[in-house]
Each structure stands twice: as C-alpha cells, then as structure tokens.
Design a protein around this nucleic acid. Structure first.
Lengths: 231, 231
DNA sequence: CCAAAAGTGTTTCACTTACACCCATGA
DNA sequence: TCATGGGTGTAAGTGAAACACTTTTGG
C-alpha cells in the first residue's frame, strides 16, 4: 500500500469513439454527445466519463456509453491513452480512449445522464469538440483505416446479413477511394470466410442482391492455414 | 475542478519494454530490473514507475528508464494501457506501457534508483516477472513483430551504419524465420531508403561488407510517392 | 420497356519466390 | 590456401489491376 499512497494521482476517464456506417449516404458517422455540465458545457464531445475503482478502462467506456446513450453490447477495443498536461482544464486528467464499431440501424441512441443530446455526426467533418477530443477522433480514424484492411472488423458496422455491394461500400467509405467491383468480390470470396445465404435483399427497385454472412468459424480455419485477411 | 475531485483516483505508472538486438547471438533482448523494494521485491520487472503530475506518460517512461538504468535518448512509443483490477497488490494502479528500441551496444545500463540490478535478458525466454509484466512483454513482442514489417523502426536497433546482413539478421530474429538473402537485399534496396556508404565493416576474418545508413529524407520521399514500407 | 444495380472472366503486368556459385579478405 | 561470409541474376509462378457487357427486378 504505502508506495502508491505517496504519489499524487490523476483522475482517470474513459472516452469512446463510436463509429457507425450510413450505407444510404455512404458516410461514416461518429456518435457525439452534447455536454450538459462541467467544462465545455454545451459543446459536442465523445461519450465517456470517469473510471470507477475496480473497473478496467474498457469496461468503464462501455458503461459510460450505455449510461449516456443507451447503446449496449458494443464492440470495443483500446485505442490510445491521452495524458498530455493541460488537456483538461480541471487539472490532471488522463483518458483511456477506446474505439467502438456499431450498426447504425440497430439501436437508437438516446440522451441520458450527463448528455444533453446525442447525435450521429459526420466523422470526417465533425463540429468543434471539447477537450482534445478532435485529436482523439483523428487517431481513431487513422486506426480504423489501418486496421480494417488486415482484420475482419468491418463486419461489425453492417447488419448480420449483408450484400457484397454493402461490404464494398463500407471499404470505400473508410478507405476513401473507389474499389473495382469484380476484383473486390473475387478477393473477399476467395478467402472463404463468408457464408453465402439463399436469401436476397428485398424491397429494392432493381435486381435483388444475394445476402452473405460473416462466419467466424471459417475465418478461424482460414487463419490456421497461415493465411491472413487483407483487402 | 469540482467534477474530477469527486472521483476516486488510481495511481498511474509508466512501464517500459525496452528491446535490444544482440547480433552476435542472434537474440532479441529485453531490459529488466531487479526490484529493490515494494511488492515483488527481488523479482525481475520492467523498468518503470509512477507518473508525476504535469507529466505525460511517455515522458514519465523515459524519465524512469533513465533513473533506473541510465539509458537516455531512447525511441519510445505508447504500447497499451493495463488497468485490470487486481494487477497490482497495492491497489488500484493503472499502467501505461511503452515500447522502446535501443542499440544494445551504445549505452551500458547501470542499476540506480529503485533497481537492485539491471540486465539484458532473452526476450523470448524471460525469467518470471513481477505484476502482469509477463503479459505486457507478450503484448510488446506481438506489436514489434507486427510493426517492424510495415514501418522502418527496426533501424533503431542497429548502429547508424550497418551491413545488409545485419539488417537481415534483425528481421530474422524478430520475425523468427529465415529469409532469402538475395530477395531480402533486392527488396530493401529497391525502396531506395538506404544510403550506400563507401565504407566497409572492418576487423572481420573474411570479406568486408559494405555499410549502409537509413536515410529519413529518402524515406519521406518514398512515402510521398504513395509507396509503403513492407518486408 | 426503362432505370438501376447485380453479377460475371480474361488479359496483362508486377511482384514474389526459389535457387547456386564465385569473390574478397584475414588468419 | 583455407575458412568465412559477401555479393550477385534468372526463371517460374502467383496475385493484383484493368476493363464492359448481360441479367434481373420493380416501377
């Protein structure tokens, strides 16, 4: 006990960069809350809050996200820890930022707790953000762009059943460039990690597309053959 | 002020996974200290210590590293933040771990401060480590293996002037597999990021090898052409 | 029948891989 | 002169990129 008691301690927060994909608008969205209190009151910020004792930062991020927006069961991974002096006017506050990917259509976020409002906003052109949250968002965007190419995490932005065109749109929006349709389909199908379903997308004013589902078991088998996901 | 004051605070530490490369032994080394005090007294651990107010975690890692081992001017990047409850018997202690790469031959580490001893040990077969430092080391090894292939950070493990064989040994040791000599040379030279010197390695009982130097300016030019480092 | 997106193969080129011998140097 | 690592080129195969038309469906 003694040793750690002798040292001054920072406040510890967990912030969450939550991305969602708007397929119709072909836009990447980020979930922001309007601060109801404290410094930057009224400004947009990333959802987040103080980590509780006996709680790991990731769990705190998930808890705060649910408290402020109602979003649950969200894929989260640690992004980076921001601890530059002066990043928070309240004093010494260190933030463990996490990256989250959710289906935009699955749950409607609602403002609760410290949030006056919640909204999906353009991740590439966000409003001015509180604290150093702009920098955190930039870091998250870079990480997402890097990671999506060699890890199958993009599926978390899509519904469980999706068309290949939707998957391609996902990559085009995040990588910010057009991809060739035939080559994209060839490559993703050749990995054998998608389950081809006997259903098609309905309610469309043109030919209906076949639906696919990401299959974690096939992905595991794929990896064990020494292969690596890459797009 | 008020808001953050109301919340319990963790102790914040910065730990450092310092890698060095032993070219003769073809071994990857990690710098460990023997703890002089506190929990796990007498056990091997990563260098590190408490972060001071007004100090960013990275800077704290550098400071602690110098205090405990004398190593200065070291390349550091943030690795991961470990905050699982129970990871430190003293209570709630969150650690921001950093990854460091140094030249094994450049500076001799010496035990000072909280360290009873300092030693370079086999990174792939370390002694039992204090706290969750074994897990931190594993995380660092994975990160290093992943990163070295698409970022030119390996050079920091070598002297400024090095032979292509030394560079190849570096990759073989970290990736843990043999590489083809001709293909390796072709690929690294084709990037045009090395400066070919008119000097050769001396004091060898065989043909002397040409020396090269990593050229940051050429690397920048290389990147701006849209190319990407990869090995 | 028209608009809109789905679906489909082939060629070319670049890059990766596999592979073996002679050369220079110091002891 | 011998032991040791330095240095070099080519051929075959694999994967990436470029590219356009027909099909299906609902309105």
């Amino acid at each position: 006990m003694a040793l750690s008691e002798r040292h001054p301690r920072p406040a510890l927060t967990a912030d969450c960069v939550v991305f969602g994909l708007d397929l119709e608008a072909e836009a990447l969205k980020v979930l922001l809350v309007r601060r109801a209190r404290g410094p930057f009151r009224g400004a947009w910020a990333l959802p987040g809050g103080f980590v509780a004792p006996g709680e790991c930062p990731q769990a705190a991020a998930a808890r705060e996200l649910e408290e402020e927006t109602g979003l649950r069961d969200v894929f989260l991974e640690q992004l980076y820890t921001f601890g530059e002096p002066g990043r928070d006017p309240r004093g010494w506050v260190v933030s463990v930022a996490s990256l989250a990917l959710v289906r935009l259509d699955a749950q409607q976020p609602v403002a609760c707790s410290d949030a006056r409002a919640v909204a999906w906003q353009d991740a590439y052109a966000p409003p001015p953000l509180a604290f150093d949250h702009g920098r955190i968002l930039d870091t998250a965007l870079k990480r997402l762009r890097g990671k999506i190419r060699y890890q199958p995490i993009g599926f978390r932005l899509l519904p469980p059943k999706f068309t290949l065109s939707q998957l391609q749109t996902l990559y085009e929006v995040i990588l910010r460039r057009r991809l060739d349709k035939r080559n994209f389909r060839k490559k993703i199908l050749s990995m054998g990690i998608l389950e081809e379903l006997d259903e098609t997308e309905r309610r469309v004013a043109h030919r209906a597309a076949r639906l696919y589902r990401f299959d974690p078991a096939r992905y595991e088998a794929f990896c064990e053959q020494g292969a690596a996901f890459s797009l």
